[in-house]
Simulated assay, not measured.
Amino acid sequence: MAGDTGRTVTVVVPAAGRASRSRGPIWCRRRPDGSITLEAVIKPLGLAHVARVIVVVLRDHVDSHCGGDAAGLTQYLATKLGLGTADRPVDDKATLEVLALENETADATETVCQAIERCGIDGPIFVKDCDGSFPHVVADDDHVCVLPITSESVTSLHDLPSKSFADECGGVLTNIVEKQIVSDLACVGGFGFASAAAFQRAQEKVRAASNSATRAGNGPGRVFTSHVALQMLVEETVFRVIKVPTFEDWKTAEAWAANSQQYKNVLMHLDGVLVRPKQTWLAAAIREMADQPASLAPHFEPIAENVAAFRAAVTSVKSARAVVLSSLSEASRPAVAAMLKEFNIPCDSLVLGCSAVGSTFLLAHDTLHIQPHAAGSLTSAVATPSA
């Protein structure tokens, strides 16, 4: 899709490691919102200049987690992300591909090089780690994505000594160091390279030096993407430094747990708490047996202070989902949904057929511990159900 469309970049997501840092491979872990991490890695990226998105995984992970169906995984991700595939292209959209490697690679840069060779990648590439997420418009030049460390942003970064850090002057990279805190610019796992071939050449030079150091007992043997960028920087390649506004980190089990805590379900009963019935509600219920009203709004009135409290509770949490419970029947769902919209009541999930009484929830968190919680922490701040 490159050429006339202006799409020249290939995004490569290397995920062919052995997942030693957490339970199972990170790329297919289920997030609190129901998505898998690969969706969260790719979705915030602006892909207007991207022709292909190539995800590189291990064959045995596809076998154990996807029933061996790499084509099915490809279509699943493409559908979730609104992208095309080689078999089912979508007009004016990048295509998504899954490359399943038989053998584990030494590190992410070797994974990228295998993708370049096996998938025939030419031109600019953007290397995106699979253990974090951030918004970024992918460009076709050499650039490094960083998060400025502030008192607010530092809470989204975990295990700082494990990250790479960059120095810049006037928006241009002057130094990049792996696993040393040398500045307030933390690299977030997004690197642009104007040439896939240049990336390969630099990676080979760093690999050769790393192998020599390993044989001498003086090096770790792994080549990070920051090492490749540093090699190209030494060779006078100019990298732009792109400061991203936010970053989600799930590199370690601790980071995953902390990130999961940002997601909350805020539950509230509708009947007698958010709305109260008017005298005509029974007539509406009777008519429901014959024909469905477009909205139940004419037969209920909002309880303004409770609606305001519910809305405030939802907006106070970064990734909250508003869940509304009601004793109204499933058949009335369209009319209830229309009423909620008319009364400006937030609702991401509408659960019908629930009695308008106290509730007890058993919550299974990521730690797999079952914790009983009595409903009412929110309703303590608002009026109790009315008749």
Rank of each mutant, 00 (worst) to 15 (best):
A2L: 14
C145D: 15
R215F: 08
D33P: 04
G120E: 14
G46V: 10
Q279V: 12
I149G: 00
S164I: 10
I36Q: 08
L101D: 12
E305N: 07
P89W: 10
D60A: 00
A16F: 01
L96E: 08
R18F: 11
D63L: 10
S212K: 06
H365R: 11
L38G: 03
R201M: 07
L378S: 03
I303H: 06
I345A: 07
S22R: 13
G171K: 00
L352V: 07
T111R: 03
R18T: 12
L296R: 08
I181C: 02
F126M: 06
V146K: 12
L58I: 05
C119K: 13
S332G: 04
G190R: 10
K251R: 07
K128N: 09
Q200W: 08
L363I: 07
A86L: 11
E117A: 09
A51M: 05
P385W: 14
L363C: 12
E110K: 00
S349V: 01
D63T: 02
A322F: 10
V138I: 13
V188L: 04
V90P: 04
G219N: 04
A290S: 12
V137K: 01
A86Q: 14
A196S: 09
C113W: 12
D122R: 09
V273L: 06
C113P: 00
V90R: 11
A100C: 07
F300Y: 15
G190V: 05
K264V: 03
D129Y: 12
T85C: 00
Q75R: 11
E204A: 11
E104R: 11
L233R: 13
A257L: 09
W250T: 03
D167K: 01
C66Y: 15
G190K: 07
E305Y: 09
V382F: 15
A106T: 11
A100K: 02
K80A: 05
L274N: 09
V228R: 02
S164N: 06
R30Q: 09
T79G: 02
F134I: 01
K243T: 10
C66F: 15
D167Y: 14
R276K: 13
E102F: 09
V138F: 03
V138C: 08
A257P: 06
C354H: 14
I303T: 03
G24E: 12
S319H: 15
L233D: 11
P135D: 05
V351L: 11
V41P: 03
I370E: 08
G219E: 11
E204P: 02
A197R: 00
D184A: 10
V55H: 09
Q292C: 11
P124I: 13
L296I: 05
Q261S: 10
D159G: 00
D271A: 01
A86H: 10
I370Y: 14
P124R: 07
A71P: 09
G17D: 02
F239H: 03
P346C: 09
V90F: 15
G72D: 09
P44G: 02
Q203N: 13
K318S: 10
N259F: 15
S260N: 14
H49Q: 12
A283R: 10
D142E: 05
P161S: 03
L96Y: 08
A308P: 03
A213E: 14
L99T: 01
F134E: 01
T111F: 01
